[in-house]
Amino acid sequence: MSIPRNWRTRQQRYSLKAEVCDNCGKTIFPPRDVCPHCARERQHWTTLSGLGEVYSFTTMYNAPTGFEEYAPYTMALVKLNEGPLVTAQLTDVDAGEVRIGMPVEMVTRKLMQDGDEGQILYGYKFRPVLQRTSA
């Protein structure tokens, strides 16, 4: 990914910055100029909880350029609690343990690196929701 493109989309990738449509109230991720549900142009910003569940998943054996060194890895469609689906890698989980409906949470991880001297692309991945112990 080019440096300007990386920079432009950083808030979405680092913190799931999203929009809520002022007209229909639906949550929109990734952000758009026009609501895909009602075609109106007024939205306000929101940040998503990062919580959702696995809608579907696959293990990538033939990775596209830039991702070869990470193969095999697990890709998923994650249904976020606020409504949108998002395409992302799963992490911190064995491929054999993934199930549709599994609760997951967003974490920030390295996605890829443009060669030895290029920029490192960071972004969201999702992992199984950790059991939290009470203090």
Partner: peptide, 20 residues
């Protein structure tokens, strides 16, 4: 910006549909 940058390929997208 939101599919390919995550590491998905065209086969992968179809795999997500087939699994679902």
């Amino acid at each position: 910006e939101y599919e390919v940058s995550q590491g998905i390929s065209f086969v992968g997208l179809n795999a997500l549909l087939m699994r679902r």
